[in-house]
């Protein structure tokens, strides 16, 4: 069975990769079909993850003594309600739009807004570390942060320079490393050196 999984990963991967570089009708058709199947399998994988999440919470509910069982019940109840609204009234229904606008958006916004306080705490801790590296990082952060406000023209120009020259250079170096790492990892999978799917 392991050899079949390896053969599928290598075969399918090489066809999609070849489709990326060459324009042959057969390769184009196969590449298109494989990408379409990938979308469907990703949806199945998402459902698998959600089923697993539901099972974990049901298990916690079954053992009522465990702290947090009430929160698990709330997770399951909310998820089931939203799912039933979506399935019976449709993904583009007013009811699901209401859920998105008045439940999801406020919660999502509030959770992300909360990060602002943690970032302020992190900046304060970095300031207290008093090393050259953290000072440099904080100075760059302050220049970019204050430079956003139209208060001082010179600071605005400094912000533009920090973003355009050292900021771009740093991010570009990281991106080059990430791209090379991605290619190396992908190639290891495509030649069968790494087989995480048969573990």
């Amino acid at each position: 069975m392991k050899w079949l999984a390896t053969a599928v990963a290598i075969g399918v991967g090489l066809i999609v990769l070849a489709d990326f570089f060459f324009a042959f009708p057969l390769l184009d058709a196969l590449g298109f079909v494989f990408k379409e199947w990938t979308i469907l399998l990703t949806a199945f994988a998402l459902l698998l993850g959600l089923v697993n999440l539901a099972l974990v919470h049901l298990d916690r509910l079954a053992r009522r003594a465990e702290p947090g069982a009430g929160y698990s019940a709330l997770v399951l109840l909310t998820a089931l309600t939203v799912l039933l609204i979506g399935l019976f009234l449709g993904a583009s229904s007013d009811a699901l739009a209401w859920v998105f606008d008045y439940l999801y958006v406020p919660l999502h916004g509030a959770f992300f807004a909360l990060v602002a306080f943690f970032l302020a705490t992190a900046a304060y801790r970095a300031l207290r570390a008093r090393s050259i590296e953290t000072t440099l990082m904080l100075v760059a952060a302050l220049v970019v942060f204050i430079g956003q406000a139209p208060l001082l023209g010179a600071l605005n120009e400094a912000k533009e320079w920090v973003l355009r020259v050292p900021g771009v250079a740093g991010v570009r170096g990281i991106l080059l490393g990430v791209a090379l790492g991605t290619i190396a990892t992908g190639l290891r999978l495509l030649i069968g050196m790494d087989r995480p799917y048969s573990e």
């Binding site: 599928v8 399918v12 990326f20 990408k35 199945f44 290619i183 990892t185 992908g186």
Partner: peptide, 23 residues
């Protein structure tokens, strides 16, 4: 393992193509 292998195969090919042409 079979569907996971399929996803890994297509995913790694798309990742290589994306990393080359996009980054």
């Amino acid at each position: 393992n079979l569907p996971i292998a399929f996803l890994f195969g297509v995913g790694s090919a798309l990742a290589i193509g994306g990393a080359l042409s996009g980054a």
